[in-house]
Design a protein around this nucleic acid. Structure first.
Lengths: 187, 187
DNA sequence: AAATAAATATACACACCTGTATATATTATA
DNA sequence: TATAATATATACAGGTGTGTATATTTATTT
């Protein structure tokens, strides 16, 4: 991947989160990235394409990071799901955290026919399936149900953190997750 | 309140939710409301003022509805908090549900200095305090902690419902809420 | 050094946005 | 009926948005 394309993606990701997607023009993006519109439109067919790539890459990066953390920490499936929110907390609390792409995008593009909304919806679904797999591996009966509940805590936490940085909401989400997981294991 | 001002508020509320706030121009609002820009700017100083009033009124309406429901159903404080998510489910599942103003607004206006963001943040806080009061009345020890957790489930549910209408996420939020409330009562 | 590719600079077409100015029509009140 | 208040119609100023056309400069390769 070209270094310039990468720089544009990175800049757009940052601006979309700090100023909003619709409020960020391509002129601003290229100015901050230190390049020109011609270059941007060489790598991305349209602003919509750029948005789609930003959302995709953000989620990919997070998923990769999370996977590595979980695999490095333990081999036991029951440990993994218990540690899920430890890493979510680490990630959300880090200074580099700027939000979750698919959550913001679905708010700015509420129409379900919109490609950006559809990609957001798909990624939310995939993340829930990821949690569900963790639960299944840990021999939890209603894995899908628990996964949905944990994803609600996750999305709620991110929302809260976006509303007010340093809210500490994730700490309580973690406690709630532990209670729900313990309950689901016993069932 | 003038009937026209009311009509504009109602139309704007609907369009903001179905198309997004930034994506909805005042021209569209007055066209759908069946009036003109001159009238809109007579009742609202600016588009920002209109947005603020829309968010304020939406939350007020919801809070009033919820309060009535809770007061009508039972006098026992411990019942009230247990029934909270019954009514949230009823509200979110109703065909008239279009989303929560302060959640969408905070996504479209991420800058914490922005008046719209600040109002959103304030309303999120007020709703959490409302839940906390329910918990305190029910003699729950860590009322603030539980209120935060329940608000995460609430915001997560709304987010999920926005992502995909009819997701049924609230049903699982309700189950999770019951577990968390029961746990908090025992503690 | 010559030829090819990549990036820049600049200008512009066209659409849409918010907000206002001005003149006209409609409705309510006295 | 005359006066005042309310709403409409229309046009426009000034800004910003996406996307493209054209020409020039820089960097890479042969």
């Amino acid at each position: 991947m070209s270094v310039l394309k990468d720089k544009i993606l990175e800049t757009a990701t940052d601006l979309f989160h700090t100023r909003g997607i619709n409020s960020t023009g391509v002129d601003t993006i290229v100015a901050v990235a230190g390049t020109t519109k011609m270059t941007l439109y060489k790598y991305f067919g349209s602003k919509e394409d750029l948005i789609l790539e930003v959302i995709q890459k953000s989620q990919q990066d997070f998923q990769s990071w999370l996977n590595e953390k979980l695999n490095a920490s333990s081999k036991k499936p029951s440990d993994k799901i218990q540690q899920l929110f430890d890493y979510i907390e680490e990630w959300v609390s880090s200074p580099a955290f700027i939000g979750v792409g698919f959550i913001k995008a679905s708010a700015e593009f509420p129409n379900e026919e919109n490609p950006i909304h559809q990609l957001s919806s798909q990624q939310s679904r995939e993340f829930r399936q990821f949690i569900s797999k963790l639960a299944k591996d840990a021999s939890i009966k209603d894995a899908d149900g628990l996964a949905l509940q944990l994803s609600l805590l996750f999305e709620g936490s991110v929302q809260a953190e976006q509303m007010k940085r340093g809210s500490g909401a994730v700490k309580y989400a973690k406690k709630a997750a532990k209670i729900l997981i313990d309950g689901a294991i016993k069932a």
